[in-house]
Design a protein around this nucleic acid. Structure first.
Lengths: 195, 195
DNA sequence: CCTACCGATCGGTAGG
DNA sequence: CCTACCGATCGGTAGG
């Protein structure tokens, strides 16, 4: 690495935060990873908390960008849900460090920034919930379950992916999405006409 | 609190670890919470890492005890799965601090203890996977899905409960289990004969 | 369980 | 981006 940029600092911070947590990462750790002293980082950033804010904001932005794109998708609500799920999986697997930090280190944020994260999560969740409601209306999804609860269960599966899935394993990303889709749509029930 | 016991120390450590993380909790924080100095804690425990090990082990033990009980349940695999799910929900909601520390702070454990946690998780997961396989065999669950993947998805939903569910909210614990059960069994698909 | 303390490490700054 | 350093805090110990 010839020259450390601010971008390098933020990215590496994301990696260390996702691996060891915010409180488990020192500015000296971060500097060492980049080949410079901890104190030299302050030429690039204001402080440690700013790094966390920036990494977490990136995580939030990736998800929101994915959700925004679904507004333009034509078709049934079920089709839009499929697109939402694909987008979520892509975000998790392509921005693992930022996503992990966003999901698990937000508690280390100062009050204002933490509230922003909660707001962002609620906005993102609301997109899923809307689609669930639309699905009940257009008949492409069940109408008798609580859309909010269904959203939470769906996101629980999606957010946990980074805790077990490895792209180098025997399950491809497409297969992963298919498995999720089948599980969420059809469930474990055996006497299902779609089998 | 008249007299601080070792049990008080471990329990309070669990609470702080679950709230602020292992690295976000100092021995002085823990002492303050108990009304004594950080250095006084060493009359009760060997060190901070020992506290983490103990809290995490409790989390693992609660889950394993729940899973062990299902071995005695008669009936179909689907019925045993339902019992496993009820047990998991009970453990999460009755031992939130230990469970959160078990799930999210295991990375702060020393190598040996962390390996023990991974082993314990695999043992517990294997109970679910066995039941999924039995369900494929006895016809009470679908036979065309990967039992390992179905286990992961189910546990993803169950483990995320502590991140959103509040016992003081409008959803009772029984209703929660019912919602999970319906979602996992029947999915979001509308044209289902069980509706 | 407190007093008094240890060496190590923390986030961060001044000045170049 | 380094040198040199700051006050604060860390996990932990000796001795009572």
């Amino acid at each position: 690495m010839t020259r450390v940029t601010r971008e390098d600092v933020v990215q590496t911070a994301g990696r260390l935060f996702s691996l060891y947590g915010y409180h488990g990462t020192s500015m000296r750790d971060l500097g060492r990873e980049l080949g410079l002293l901890g104190s030299s980082l302050y030429a690039h950033v204001d402080g440690k908390q700013q790094l966390l804010v920036e990494v977490v904001e990136r995580g939030a932005r990736f998800f929101q960008t994915s959700a925004d794109a679904v507004g333009t998708v034509e078709g049934t609500a079920a089709e839009r849900l499929r697109v939402l799920i694909e987008g979520h999986v892509d975000v998790v697997l392509e921005h693992r460090d930022e996503v992990r930090t966003y999901l698990y280190e937000a508690t280390a944020l100062d009050d204002d920034a933490r509230q922003n994260v909660l707001d962002a999560r609620n906005r993102y969740e609301a997109v899923f919930t809307s689609v669930m409601k639309e699905g009940a209306a257009d008949g492409s999804l069940r109408s008798d379950l609580d859309p909010k609860t269904a959203t939470i269960f769906t996101l629980s599966i999606l957010n946990a992916i980074d805790r077990w899935y490895s792209e180098s394993g025997r399950m491809s990303r497409k297969k992963l999405v298919d498995e999720i889709w089948t599980f969420i749509l059809k469930g474990l029930c055996p006497t299902n006409p779609f089998l």
